[in-house]
Design a protein around this nucleic acid. Structure first.
Lengths: 237, 237
DNA sequence: AAAGTATGAGTAACTTGTACAACAAATTAT
DNA sequence: ATAATTTGTTGTACAAGTTACTCATACTTT
């Protein structure tokens, strides 16, 4: 802060309480992987202005919590999930983005494993939607969602974050389906395999797929502590 | 916003004004290029807690301005510069990041051309510092600065943003010095030339350097509207 | 005139990326 | 049971991109 350097917050508060008429919230784009599609968890809005529209999970930031802690709290309150992957994306603060007043919101996206952890959904108004079939979204949440998808697409090319969306053990086919769902493209299965092994992210689980209507594939799990450095720079063609 | 959906901001304000005891600011990391070094514009802090420390340029966000407009206003107020390059980086909101109270801040970085525009610096306490020789910074501004440098390093590899730091016309040598300063590495002169022409960002200015103590190089300027697509993916080795 | 430094253009070796061919293993249809 | 089909797995050939390095030329300084 610059001018604020010259005064204390208390002074500013007493002189001009107008600055404190801005509310501050956090919104979460929660991604899951369902039936070979990338999904987002949405909440039915019951604001009169946005009847029948859906919105991201969010809440006001508490005065006694760090900004980066707020999305963890929200996720736990709404879904029961702890220790999830979360990353800050961007902050949106147009004057008119919320019809009820001035609200600046910081957006996070989260990657959660839907299959292993059954969600304890507090409200019936919570529901998953494939990113390809989004309903009408309230506020500027469509723009926010697109920003998060773009960020996720950039991220998975270099960082091993997709494993947060998968169960402990998975086949290469499942992993490739996930990449294809996120990137919205088809990938060559032989080159995909080659690059992934160069990345050194996978470890053989010494198990095979069960009850699949085709030749079962090997199962792998994510190698958390990478010993060798990755030799491939990027993953996708 | 989620729970906020169920209530209007006015209701929340009247019920619990505590949420409005968070102040909201914007901080700017202003980069310039001086004597082959990447520099940052800093302001001498006169908060008692941070005597003799320096801080980024910042200010509280006004209730009647869009968040993304605030850094433009701050830059114009402090330096007289308009139409500068600005990009949002991240938002910092730890409880104790500001000694005088709860302040959440959104950080932007800016790239400005120091040689062409002489800055109208309002205060004498404004000064440029090379990123390699930073003074003690107030608040969490050192952490913020490092985040911005990282972001800038990632960005220049793929996007033609560095030209905001240079005068209209420049030599390849100057451009390479700039890249080397930002990335803190040495680059091969011949490969740098090759890749830059592949990027198709440059146009021959049909002029030569003047008054240099060596063989003068050609001057180029940035080709704003790229016709051909770039053939090189990344710039740096 | 010689030495030093910088620009400018090019080439060869190497690494990485892409598009396939071929086959093996399991399942499903006939 | 056999053939057709789907998926997993290994490998090869070629294209594209990266890296390292040679050479020639132009200008300045001593």
């Amino acid at each position: 802060m610059g001018t604020a350097n010259q005064k204390t917050i208390q002074q500013i508060q007493s002189e001009n309480s107008d600055f404190f008429r801005i509310a501050f919230s956090v919104d979460c784009v929660i991604f899951g992987f369902h039936k070979n599609e990338l999904n987002v968890l949405l909440l039915k809005s019951d604001l009169e202005e946005f009847k029948d529209k859906w919105s991201l999970l969010g809440d006001l930031v508490r005065t006694d919590e760090n900004l980066d802690d707020a999305p963890y709290r929200i996720l736990q309150e709404r879904t029961g999930l702890k220790d999830v992957f979360l990353e800050q994306v961007s902050t949106f603060g147009d004057i008119d983005r919320h019809p009820a007043g001035r609200v600046i919101t910081t957006v996070y996206y989260s990657l959660i494993n839907v299959k292993d952890h059954l969600l304890r959904l507090q409200h019936h108004e919570l529901s998953w939607f494939p990113v390809t079939k989004m309903p009408q979204l309230a506020f500027d949440h469509y723009k926010i969602l697109q920003t998060c998808i773009k960020k996720l697409q950039d991220k998975i090319d270099k960082e091993p974050v997709v494993f947060n969306l998968l169960p402990e053990k998975f086949s290469l086919r499942e992993l490739q389906n996930l990449y294809e769902a996120i990137l919205d493209t088809k990938l060559d299965r032989r080159n995909f395999r080659k690059k992934l092994f160069l990345m050194d992210w996978l470890e053989d689980a010494k198990e095979m797929e069960q009850d699949v209507p085709h030749r079962p594939g090997k199962l792998y799990h994510y190698r958390a502590s990478t010993t060798k450095p990755a030799t491939a720079q990027t993953l996708v063609q």
